[in-house]
Design a protein around this nucleic acid. Sequence first.
DNA 1: GCAAAAGTGTTAGAATTACACCCATGC
DNA 2: GCATGGGTGTAATTCTAACACTTTTGC
Lengths: 251, 251
Amino acid sequence: MYFILYSLGVATKPVPFYVAVDIVAMTIEDKELKTVVVHRQSAKSGVLALPGGIVKPNESLRQAAMRELFEETGIKVEADQLHQGRAFGDPDRDPRGRYVTIAYVALLPIIDAISAGSDAATAELVPVQRILSGRLRLEFDHNKIVRAAYKKAIRLIEDTPAATSFCSRKGFSLSELRNVYETILGWEIDPANFRRKVAETKGLVDFVEPGSVAPSGGTRGRPSDMYKRGKASELDPPMWFRGPSDKSRAS
Amino acid sequence: MYFILYSLGVATKPVPFYVAVDIVAMTIEDKELKTVVVHRQSAKSGVLALPGGIVKPNESLRQAAMRELFEETGIKVEADQLHQGRAFGDPDRDPRGRYVTIAYVALLPIIDAISAGSDAATAELVPVQRILSGRLRLEFDHNKIVRAAYKKAIRLIEDTPAATSFCSRKGFSLSELRNVYETILGWEIDPANFRRKVAETKGLVDFVEPGSVAPSGGTRGRPSDMYKRGKASELDPPMWFRGPSDKSRAS
DNA sequence: GCAAAAGTGTTAGAATTACACCCATGC
DNA sequence: GCATGGGTGTAATTCTAACACTTTTGC
């Protein structure tokens, strides 16, 4: 029984296994994909890290992710906004001990992000690109976790209705939804073709009768039709965009 | 510190966290996708389970998967044949304690499967479909793990050169590779169109000069050109097949 | 020669793209 | 009116599917 021996300092390695979750909570702000980071009160101050922490004995991994995200940022998410990512478990990934962490990806409308919560003061939104490029360094291997989460986000918006998670749950216009795809994929999509593709992809969005929801978006121009998240779990065929000219898709 | 309290039976729940790996080792035999299961010497005999076990303090998750697979089935895999899948960590998924397990998917050519090894006698190949349909019940939530692994396998052969893992590392014909796709996707693919798609997908396979490798496959007909795995990590565009007529793709 | 499997060519149809054009609203 | 964004139509292009046809081998 490793745990007892290690905990009591009998065996050579004094580290037990810890099971943790880390959450990459993404949102779109100012046409940029951003993620939530927290300021850890570590030895050296100013260390940025993903929100996360140890899984409790009687909760599921998903519950742990929801709890930790709320405790550290004040963000409350629905179950369909949370997606499990990769597990990270290299022996030396965390100097404090043997941590195996399960990444979770949360997709949020900007309005919900870091709105309230006790410890929320320490939470902050930073552009994902700054982390991917390495210009912003996070604690431990959290840069790797964000990179994997970004790839997962691309897959999610292509294969599932997850892109709607970035929009208001009340309802959204197709421009808002298109903006999500454009921001994450990194190129512009023809509005006309986008509209048709969405319409032909059953289960992505449902039309909302006019009047039940106030049209959102800019005050200019013709008011848009409103939609809400569809009920499909997988899109068939996926939402695919070849990207500009002969350039290959983001990877 | 949960571990000490729980281990000593002080707290209400006497279960520490265990971190484990379970391996879904798939291969193709008789035009059928099969996976390796082992007979657990449990209380009730005849219980089938995925190979797997506890991660050791100083090994990575991947190393644990390679070790456990070898120990329990005698199968030795290369790093590029092992792919991490989902984590399963519900509190009640294993009655023996709080197990968080990371699934690994291994893709093997049939020739390597269960060839040698000490405990190999207890290992067995069973059709994946029998597990997916529920006709074959595995221990705990291993049916769920296989289901997720099957989806992952589909994604892998579409987005990466992983389909080549089912073929001999020495070299393979395009018929053999096409057979992999047909078996996993569940429908037939036009050989001519398949050939063109493979040729246009850079990094999927590399041509092998005739003479260096003996043509494999049936003794009838014109000998085939031989190929080996390409160096791409992601295929762009992916290997996609719409499937027969208007029928939607497998899900 | 004949059967069988490998490999090439060709064409109809479908999906994608690019862009022109009309609609509804605020100012 | 007119600028702005929402929404529709359509032709050129590209991709895909289907199948006819040629090549190379074993027997």
